[in-house]
Amino acid sequence: MIVRYLLAALVAGLFSGVLMTAAQEARVVPLILHAEEFEGGDEAAPAAEGTTPGTGTEGAAQTQDHSSLGAVILDVASALSPVSVAYAHEGEDHEEGGIMFGMSRFSGTLLANLVTGAGFGLLLAGFSLVSGHPITVANGALWGAAGWLAVHMLPAIGLPPELPGFPAADLGDRQVWWIATVILSAAGLYLLFLKQNIVAKVIGIVLIAAPQVYGAPQPGDISSNVPAVLGAEFAVAALATTLFFWIVLGLSLGFANEKIAKAA
């Protein structure tokens, strides 16, 4: 029986991941690609000033200003290829990257969405099983909305969804704050929504507010070459598509759970 509940979570998560990929391709990914045309101008500009002034006008063609010959060849190859690769980003000493198994950028995104969907499906199912509050078709959308609040909306107050090329604080600091905020928000929402005790509800609100009061790590310099309009459009698009993902996930998990309960 245990395995069947895990399978239900996996199926719901994979299904939601596929739909999420379609939603992303419609709006979010085009904005990411657009932003990448501006990305890296910050780092490229100082180097360009000393050598060839005036190259700024060709910024779009030079967004990936790598120094080594191999990287240049890769840039040329990627410019000629119909399949664009997800770049390792400017100004970081990356180990050798590249997409797994030589997949296209879209396949990589689809695979990542499937894995992420399965992961969030399992987390949602696990939360429901441990807390003893079943997810059904009737309450699935609310479960999904709560998951979206905990994982996306509340962390986005401190760390809004970023486009490539946006200024940001140290990655490790942001990840720690993000993980802590997701856990505290989930615990807070649980106390707020699923406990009747007024003290528990108050503690829930305190838990939700705590990471926001503490504050997310912010970058020292917030200048960016990426137009602000793109950032605003992207933040809304990212939050809207993730809300769609979570509601689909909650509903499909409720549906799968009820199928299992009937079959048992």
Partner: peptide, 14 residues
């Protein structure tokens, strides 16, 4: 990172 790049941005992961 490179494989999941667009997904990471879309989900708002740091």
């Amino acid at each position: 990172h490179d494989t999941a790049h667009d997904t990471r941005h879309s989900y708002g992961f740091p």
